[in-house]
Amino acid sequence: MGTSTTRQRMRTERRKGRVRAALKRVAYGRPRLSVFRSSQHIYVQIIDDTQGRTLISASTVEKDLRETLKSGANVQAATAVGKLLAERAKAAGIEKVQFDRGSYIYHGRIKALADAAREVGLDF
């Protein structure tokens, strides 16, 4: 059992590395919108890789979102987080970002988050 989990973890890390490498080739100085999803929540950050710091973040564990959502692990929650992050980014003057899906397939919660952020006006 341990060997199988190790192989899976290695495949995930390689996939994430490929996505990040491709992003860095075409980033043109844009901040990176990084997504992490767990079985219960979804977290998203806009990161400035040149300075190595997080500029803006949002997640389903924040009190105002947690109170309005039924669950933090569904498409509705991802949509709410995407809208919240895009609103915060626009308020901070960030218009264009590079979308970093990490090792996740662009489907379901990840796609819903991206679509909601685009809807509010974030460009990627």
Rank of each mutant, 00 (worst) to 15 (best):
A112D: 04
D48C: 11
R109C: 04
A86L: 05
A116V: 00
E87S: 03
E119H: 07
R118S: 05
Q98R: 06
R30I: 09
R53H: 13
V19Y: 02
K63P: 15
K24Q: 13
K70M: 06
G93W: 04
T79A: 15
R53T: 08
R53G: 09
T5A: 10
T5H: 14
G52I: 00
V97G: 07
V35M: 06
R20Y: 00
S39C: 11
D100N: 03
R88V: 01
L69E: 14
L122D: 14
A89T: 11
R101L: 02
S59C: 13
G121P: 07
K70P: 02
Q98H: 05
R18I: 00
E119R: 09
R37Q: 15
T5P: 10
E13F: 03
R14Y: 01
R66D: 15
A114C: 04
A117D: 08
R118Q: 06
E13A: 05
Y28W: 13
K16I: 02
R66V: 15
S103N: 09
K24N: 09
I110F: 01
K83R: 13
P31R: 10
R30K: 14
S4L: 12
R118T: 01
E67T: 13
A21E: 02
A77L: 12
H107Y: 05
L69N: 14
L84D: 05
H107L: 00
L33D: 03
G52E: 00
Y106L: 02
K70S: 14
F36K: 11
D123G: 04
G121W: 10
T12P: 11
R88N: 05
R9H: 11
V97D: 07
T12L: 12
K96I: 01
T79P: 14
V26G: 10
Y104H: 04
A112S: 06
S39F: 03
F124R: 10
L65I: 12
F36P: 14
G121S: 06
A89L: 13
A21F: 00
Q45V: 07
G102T: 05
D123Q: 08
R11W: 11
K111L: 08
T68M: 14
R20V: 01
K16M: 01
R118K: 05
I42C: 07
L23W: 03
A27Y: 09
T79W: 12
V61G: 13
G52L: 00
T50Q: 06
I46L: 06
A73W: 02
G2L: 09
Q40D: 14
Y28C: 11
T6Q: 15
Q76A: 15
I42K: 04
A27G: 13
R88F: 01
T12G: 08
V19E: 03
F124H: 13
I46Q: 00
V26D: 05
K16W: 08
A73H: 12
R9F: 01
I47R: 06
D100S: 03
G29W: 09
T12K: 12
R25Y: 08
S103F: 03
D100Q: 03
D64Y: 05
G72W: 10
D49L: 05
E95C: 01
I110S: 01
R18L: 00
D64R: 09
F124V: 11
